[in-house]
Design a protein around this nucleic acid. Sequence first.
DNA 1: CGCAGAGTTGAACACCTTCAATGCCCGTGG
DNA 2: CCACGGGCATTGAAGGTGTTCAACTCTGCG
Lengths: 259, 259
Amino acid sequence: MDATVLPSRSNPLILRLRHGPDLDAGDRALLADMARVKRSLDPQQDIVRAGDVAAGVHLILEGFAFRYKIIDDGQRQIIGLLLPGDFCDLQSIVLGPSDHYIAALTPCIVADIPQEQVDSLVFRDSRLARALWWATLVDESILREWLASMGQRPADKRIAHLFCELLLRQQLVGAAGERDCPLPLTQPMLADILGITTIHVSRILRDLRLAGLIQLKDRRLYIPNVARLRSFCDFDPAYLHLVRMPDPDAVEEAARTGP
Amino acid sequence: MDATVLPSRSNPLILRLRHGPDLDAGDRALLADMARVKRSLDPQQDIVRAGDVAAGVHLILEGFAFRYKIIDDGQRQIIGLLLPGDFCDLQSIVLGPSDHYIAALTPCIVADIPQEQVDSLVFRDSRLARALWWATLVDESILREWLASMGQRPADKRIAHLFCELLLRQQLVGAAGERDCPLPLTQPMLADILGITTIHVSRILRDLRLAGLIQLKDRRLYIPNVARLRSFCDFDPAYLHLVRMPDPDAVEEAARTGP
DNA sequence: CGCAGAGTTGAACACCTTCAATGCCCGTGG
DNA sequence: CCACGGGCATTGAAGGTGTTCAACTCTGCG
């Protein structure tokens, strides 16, 4: 694998961006310059590990790589394929520690781009731009978790996982108590979220109710024992990328005053 | 639904960002100012339609909303839930026309933020920042399509859809011909992408082969009739957000010279 | 009142999994 | 050199999760 065989005109990032926003020659030169430091990787070699704080951003120049998550300590769900011209972990400049793994699928050549270089290019001095990008990247991270859930979890754990997520996300904005939150979802809605039929949703909710894991009343979700529900569905909130966990006082206050 | 009941301290965007990057009082004031123009929405009312070019960015202040895709002209897959403090379509400032729908689930209050206001805040004058954000947002869009595929398509159409995507994405970077491309995925890999077992992957590939839809040889995918495979799995490349479709000349050249 | 949509339950069926067995290719080591 | 092991690929048979079809109740609403 000799990276020098790449003629500059076929830098895959620049090829790919021909289908995206307009760039001028100066922009392209800057991008080409970012991809200066190259590295070869063998198949199955990890590029990013979940929990890693990235030292740099990686760009695929040649070969295939893939993103994946590990569910329930074993089952792997591949949640993306990375082709030449794709960034592996542009998110890391905003999100911090990765919530998933990335590994080479074929022999790869990747560019290692220093974090600061991208950071200064993108944000200059705007904290606000970073905050807004953070918001979209958390969305994307939730989407990855949903995809992994859809691929690897049976329907009952999928719905339990969704409930854990909704409780926590509503706590973040003070809309939920410690063990309960609004749940304005009808069963046909839940079916379309989970990719199953309404009939099956009904049966699963009955089973979860009978197992004492949840209670539903008046479009509200009660979770008698949050820890138990979380362990039932292997819920790990890391994918929500919360710098600070929800403030228990705020949550309690919300519980007292109501939504 | 009276928006004025919201005390400023409980602006849900600001509450949510307490768990994200640090902001100072000035930043928070800017954000609060963005959410000045409010609007009430009834349940089931669309906020964004697929194909729409957004006039503004929408932020949920109260209520639930949801993202969804329509597969095969009918089946709905919900691909995200939007809670107070969540942006609906921050992507639109980069991606242009939406690839999915967003609708109110409960009565909602949303803020309408003019496109230019966010745009100037985020990008100032950096085309490059826009290009990099574009790249991550296309990733996110692919993820949405995968989730919808996982939820609503049977495994044979799911795999066909993946193949259509991989052909096109490789054409974009000149790594594929008109009807064939590298496919360095083993069946166990495909299984982990599709969320099924390797055994079932084997059977489906056999069926697709027997139907004359695909050929596999030497880790390469041949598609005798791309239009036929696309219609089989209802493939619509809109979710890749290509400003320009791949140049047929470039693809032909790649086909001649090989990868 | 009648109707539309939510929710529930039963029975038959289908898609996909699990278990089991076999053949293939290829790199490794006796 | 050939035997062995490991991962990939394929096929059959049995079983389970989730679907389809159908019937029924309940609620809210014009």
